[in-house]
């Protein structure tokens, strides 16, 4: 099957610091991929390069066979790649419902301009209500986003990314700031809601139990490079990954 997302030799240097070093990744459609690695390993830089927030020093990003290297985030979003944020980026003075409606409204504006409203799309207002239910945000519907608890803001941030109907969703640490016993419930909820639309998911995560449970493939980052790539069990058993990423003692290792 041809890749939905492909990077070749993707490199980002800030002066002498190389945040991303020759990253070549190919992601198959309809999969869930985990990105692991310590702080400064290059995971978020990878997301920033793919979504156009930063322009690569070298290398290319291809989405569905189309070169999207260096396009602005809004163009990449319109093509079908969206992301959520480690620190929730929501519209504080708007309610949860209105937050979702912003993204849904933008999509419907674009549709009207290019395809016409004859597609039989559901009204954005109805989709917003449905998404609030799907993400169990119903009780927060009319609360301003600034008043929501951190975990709920996180959920809203992810729901907003899904609202613009992406083909690939990049989640930056979806469970950070969420208590340990709520992480699995949150991921069940999030991935359940996302995967219903057959969206390809790449997510950054520090909790190895979460990664093992929810992904089909892991990319392990260290020092701007990808040091391991493959099935979760194989990557997590890899000696380099254990030394540099998970910090587990390596049996028989130095």
């Amino acid at each position: 099957m041809s890749a939905i997302l492909e990077t070749r030799g993707l490199t980002k240097a800030f002066g002498a610091v190389v945040a991303a070093n020759d990253l070549s990744v190919s992601v198959a459609p309809d999969t869930v991929v985990g990105l692991i690695g310590g702080n400064g390993a290059g995971k978020t830089t990878f997301l920033n390069l793919v979504t156009g927030y930063q322009k690569p020093t070298a290398g290319t990003v291809t989405f569905e066979g189309r070169d999207i290297t260096g396009l602005a985030p809004r163009r990449i979003t319109r093509l079908g790649i969206c992301r959520s944020f480690q620190i929730p980026q929501v519209f504080d003075t708007l309610t949860a419902y209105e937050n979702l409606l912003v993204g849904l409204g933008i999509v419907s504006l674009g549709r009207r301009a290019f395809v016409g409203s004859a597609l039989g799309d559901q009204a954005p207002e109805a989709v917003a209500e449905e998404m609030l239910q799907r993400f169990r945000l119903g009780e927060w519907r009319d609360a301003p986003a600034s008043a929501l608890p951190e975990g709920v803001r996180k959920l809203l941030d992810i729901a907003m990314a899904l609202a613009v109907k992406p083909r690939i969703l990049l989640l930056d640490e979806p469970t950070s700031g969420v208590s340990a016993d709520e992480k699995f419930a949150l991921m069940d909820l999030v991935l359940g809601a996302i995967r219903a639309d057959k969206v390809t998911v790449l997510f950054v995560e520090h909790d190895m139990d979460i990664v093992r449970r929810y992904t089909e493939r892991i990319l392990a980052f260290y020092d701007g490079r990808i040091i391991a790539d493959g099935m979760p069990d194989r990557v997590l058993a890899d000696a380099e990954v254990r030394r540099y990423v998970t910090g587990e003692p390596v049996p028989g290792g130095a």
């Binding site: 979504t51 602005a72 985030p73 809004r74 979003t77 319109r78 969206c82 992301r83 980026q89 929501v90 519209f91 504080d92 003075t93 708007l94 209105e98 409606l101 912003v102 993204g103 409204g105 933008i106 999509v107 504006l109 674009g110 907003m160 990314a161 609202a163 613009v164």
Partner: peptide
């Protein structure tokens, strides 16, 4: 509706495709 959204968070508006 993008008016208050832009006031609150321009980056996110761009990431929603506008």
């Amino acid at each position: 509706r993008l008016a208050p959204a832009i006031r609150d968070n321009e980056l996110r508006v761009e990431y929603m495709g506008a």
